[in-house]
Structures are given as C-alpha cells and as structure tokens.
Amino acid sequence: MTLDLYGFGPALAAGTLMTIKLALSALCLGLVLGLLGALAKTSPQKPLQWLGGTYSTLVRGIPELLWVLLIYFGTVNLMGRLGELLGHPGLALNAFAAGIIALGLCFGAYATEVFRGAILAIPRGHREAGQALGMSKPRIFWRIILPQMWRIALPGLGNLFMILMKDTALVSVIGLEELMRRSQIAVTSSKEPFTFFLVAAFIYLSLTIIAMIGMYFLEKRAGRGFTRSAS
C-alpha cells in the first residue's frame, strides 16, 4: 500500500528541510540569549539582574504566535522606513529571518531559567577552588562553570528544543513555506486534509524522535566524567 501525495512529496520534503533550518537557527540564537540572560540574572550587579529578569518575564508572558506577528510586522514597518531614508524603499526583513528572531527570542527566555538553575546548582566551592589556584574569572567560567552548567542544563534544553521544533509551525502565519505551510497548500489543492495533516504529524514525530536520540548521546557524553566520579 502506497500513500498518494498527489505530487506534493518534494514540496513536503522542502518544507521539512526549511523547518529543520529554522529550528536549528533559532536554537543557536536562543542558546546565546539564554546564556546571556542567565549570566545577567546571576550577576551581582542589580541593573543586570533587572535586565535579565525583565527579558525572561516579558518574553515568557506573551504567546509565541504574538511574538512572531509582532516581530515580522514591526520590522516590516521599521525597515520600510529605514529603506526610504537610505534610498532603498524595498528594504524588508524576510519571513525566515523574522521567524528565527521570534523563536530564538522565546527559546532564549526559557533557556535563561534553565541556565540560571544550572549555575545555581554548582557548588560555590568550585569557584573558590579556581580562585585559590589563581585562575581569572573568565577562565573559571570557561573551565569550571560552563562544563558543569552544560551537563546540568542539557535535559531541560533538550525539552525546550523539542517544543521549538513544533513551534516552527507558527511561522506559517507570516508566509514562510515550512512544513505546516506546505501541508496547508497541499490540502487546499488536493482537498485531502486528513492525508496531509497526518503526514505532517508523522514528520514532526520523526523529527522529535531523532532529536531525542541526539539528546540521549549528548547527555551521555556530557555526563561521562560525572558518572565515573560518582561510581
């Protein structure tokens, strides 16, 4: 028995590839924002604490779909005016870039709390040991704090990434032809909603399973030294 996709197989494959690109790009941006947010929230400087807390609270308090719409249409107007000033009236941010910014911003807000919890879970004595050895603060962070923080935060980040992959479907509302958008186009043309939405669900599930397998090996690798010392 073969599944009839009415010739939309290549289009769905292209949409799947776009979904993967969008998710990985937003992940990279989100990890950077999350790490900066966590460092700000755990900083002894009050202004940085306020900045990090405001970022995570504000972004998490607004639905991801609204962020997609706000960033896309907001940047369209902003860049349109900027283009007029620079003599390039066609200047605009495309849907892919807007999706990366919106999803990366949301991922980073949640990752901020994951990283923050991981930093607070590291015993203070580890920092003091680094200071006793004459290590600088950046070196202590890079050699002592960051590896432990990564190991502790990895399970939470893995869950956030799986949510991020499904949230890529939200970007279809601004016209990006990722998997969900391609599926909707196929449904409109073929009048077979169950078939194509079922295929889309299977593809999302497959991507999630692949991500789970990848996270398993990352967690296993990150915890190698910790496992040996605990045994």
Rank of each mutant, 00 (worst) to 15 (best):
V59H: 08
V59G: 06
R60I: 00
R60K: 12
G61R: 05
L66A: 09
V68P: 01
V68Y: 03
V68D: 00
V68G: 02
L69P: 05
I71R: 11
Y72M: 01
Y72T: 04
F73Q: 02
G74M: 14
N77P: 00
N77T: 10
M79D: 12
M79A: 15
G80L: 11
G80H: 07
R81H: 12
G83H: 00
G87C: 06
H88M: 11
P89D: 15
G90I: 05
G90F: 01
L91T: 14
A92Q: 13
N94L: 04
N94Y: 03
A95E: 04
A95W: 12
F96P: 14
F96L: 04
A98V: 03
G99T: 00
G99H: 00
I100M: 02
L103G: 03
G104Y: 00
L105A: 01
C106E: 09
F107R: 00
F107Y: 05
Y110I: 08
Y110R: 08
A111F: 05
A111W: 08
E113V: 07
V114G: 09
F115R: 05
R116L: 14
R116D: 11
G117K: 11
A121P: 06
P123C: 00
G125F: 02
H126V: 14
H126M: 13
A129C: 08
G130A: 05
A132L: 06
M135G: 04
K137M: 10
P138G: 07
R139A: 15
R139V: 14
F141K: 09
F141I: 02
W142G: 14
I145G: 12
Q148R: 01
M149R: 01
M149F: 08
M149Y: 00
M149I: 09
W150Y: 10
R151C: 13
I152E: 15
A153R: 05
A153D: 11
P155F: 03
L157A: 02
G158C: 10
N159R: 01
L160Q: 05
L164E: 07
L164F: 01
D167R: 02
D167G: 04
A169R: 08
V171W: 09
S172W: 00
S172Y: 02
V173M: 12
G175D: 12
L176F: 14
L176Q: 11
L176Y: 13
E177P: 10
L179Q: 04
M180K: 07
R181T: 13
R181I: 03
R181N: 15
R181Y: 14
R182L: 06
S183C: 01
S183L: 06
I185N: 14
V187Q: 15
T188G: 15
T188P: 11
S190Y: 07
K191H: 15
K191P: 07
P193S: 13
F197H: 09
L198S: 09
A200S: 09
F202D: 15
